[in-house]
């Protein structure tokens, strides 16, 4: 059974995907992840998730999913002019 592994590299940061591994149950998956992916002190916390349980967006839906966000520049602060000389804006 395939598991995806996520590691928090240090406190204050999110878990990040680092790779995958095989294990037949969650207990071993977590320990395998510790042995394989944190040998060089890369982590302070580990998540393992059965790969089959991940629901992912499909590349076919990419346009419908992500293009509509492209024409809304007013969501970004750089859209607005800040009058010269003013701060704290």
């Amino acid at each position: 059974m395939l598991w995806e592994v996520f590691v928090r590299s240090r406190r204050g940061l999110s878990h990040t995907h680092v790779g995958s591994l095989h294990a037949d149950d969650a207990h071993l998956a977590l320990r395998n992840a510790r042995d394989v992916y944190t040998r060089r002190q890369e982590g302070t916390s580990i998540w393992v998730v059965p790969a089959a349980q991940i629901v992912a967006s499909s590349p076919d839906e990419k346009d419908a999913f992500f293009d509509p966000a492209g024409d809304k520049p007013y969501r970004h602060p750089t859209f607005y002019d800040v009058p010269e000389g003013l701060t704290h804006l």
Binding site: L2, G19, S20, L21, V36, R39
Partner: peptide, 16 residues
């Protein structure tokens, strides 16, 4: 040698 096992594992993962 342990790293090599780990590297094999990362690569099989990439192939998968």
């Amino acid at each position: 040698v342990q790293d090599e096992a780990g590297h094999g594992l990362y690569l099989y993962g990439a192939a998968e």
